[in-house]
């Protein structure tokens, strides 16, 4: 049975492994044929910045992991507009295709899902 699962990504990448471990869970869920959406919220919006270059800090690229999501048919990616603005980011600085939504839309996005988990 396919469930609609929303993953709320609210950890910034690199400083902690949580963001990475969240992506690992997303890729696993996709392999089991679940209908996955991802919401980048709070510091999670830092995950989708383009030009990430973590080779010198000896960590794997988070963006590279996000870039393979379409291969798993994960295409419902959302980012919160106010959280981007608050961090001085605009859509041209993003490295993956996301739908920008407002804070006021988050509540109904969560409510529409069968299951929700945040990392």
């Amino acid at each position: 049975m396919t469930n609609e699962i929303l993953i709320i990504a609210r950890s910034a990448p690199y400083g902690s492994s949580l963001a990475r471990e969240g992506i690992d869970y997303i890729l696993t869920s996709a392999a089991y044929d679940q209908d996955i959406s991802i919401l980048f919220l709070g510091d999670g919006v830092f995950q989708i910045l383009k030009d990430q270059n973590p080779a010198d800090i000896k960590l794997k690229s988070h963006l590279a992991a996000l870039e393979i999501l379409p291969l798993y048919d994960i295409e419902k990616l959302y980012a919160v507009k106010e959280d981007l603005l608050e961090r001085g980011l605009d859509i041209n600085q993003l490295g993956v295709k996301v739908t920008v939504i407002e804070r006021s839309q988050v509540d109904s996005l969560i409510d529409s899902q069968d299951k929700v988990l945040s990392f």
């Binding site: 919220l41 709070g42 919160v80 804070r103 988050v106 409510d111």
Partner: peptide, 9 residues
Amino acid sequence: LKDCLNTIG
């Protein structure tokens, strides 16, 4: 807390 209350229903 802030992230939660920003989007709470």
